[in-house]
Design a protein around this nucleic acid. Structure first.
Lengths: 127, 127
DNA sequence: CGGGATCCGGATGGATACTG
DNA sequence: CAGTATCCATCCGGATCCCG
């Protein structure tokens, strides 16, 4: 950053979520997904191995928690820690970047507004 | 996202910056860096090839502009487009995630406050 | 000096099959 | 359902050489 060689806080944050699918998985958790196979929905390119590694890393970094509820059959739930939940603003701004882009024609005006409200609610954004 | 199969705006945004060094390069541009070799400072693992590809992709996606100022010797400047500048809030929240983390002991309280102010100023954040 | 081209080993990602 | 094992493809990082 500057002459003093202070580590940039952006780099510190990015080190937590540097794996390809981390943010999408965290986003999914905000939207209520909890199970291994749920995270794979809508992500045809996400393989078991990569998802497994990603969840493991997010757990090691303290962003998510793994709860094993049952043994036969195995039932596992993943959920965000408080630390993980504090990523809400990052996810929010990632969404708003596209939702406030005038030149983006992905959505109708109606869908765009619905999405804005949905993200504000789910991510508990109050500003 | 939901039953209607609307593309998630987070995914749309992430498609723009999915390459490993994209965000750091955009961050650097906010802090005034313009030249190829400037982006490599503080990034010992970033090779010419990867940086070159990354800049090319950011240009294709409309986030940055490449200006060739001179031919002999070549002088090239990279700068953010308005579209790229609208990433300011994303970069801001990435920084604040670490700067507001009570358990993070990377910085002294003084440095932490200096960094908060610096990012707010450089990124022109008014909230 | 500001890059681009190439080669190469290692890390990461993806597809499929299989197990408790 | 929640992974593991395996194999293959792709990307990354480092070195080096090149060109204007």
């Amino acid at each position: 950053m500057k002459g003093e060689r202070v580590v940039c806080p952006v780099d510190v944050t990015l080190n937590l979520i540097n794996k390809k699918w981390c943010i999408q998985i965290i986003r999914d958790m905000f939207f209520g997904k909890k199970h291994f196979n749920e995270f794979k929905e809508d992500k045809p390119n996400l393989s078991n191995k990569v998802l497994s590694n990603c969840l493991k890393e997010l757990e090691e970094k303290g962003l998510i928690e793994k709860l094993v509820l049952n043994t036969t059959p195995v039932t596992t739930e993943y959920c965000l820690t408080e630390y993980g939940k504090s990523m809400n603003r990052i996810v929010y701004e990632l969404a708003m970047f596209t939702l406030y882009d005038e030149n983006d024609n992905t959505y109708s005006d109606e869908t765009r507004n619905e999405l804005k409200n949905m993200f504000r609610e789910v991510l508990e954004i109050d500003y």
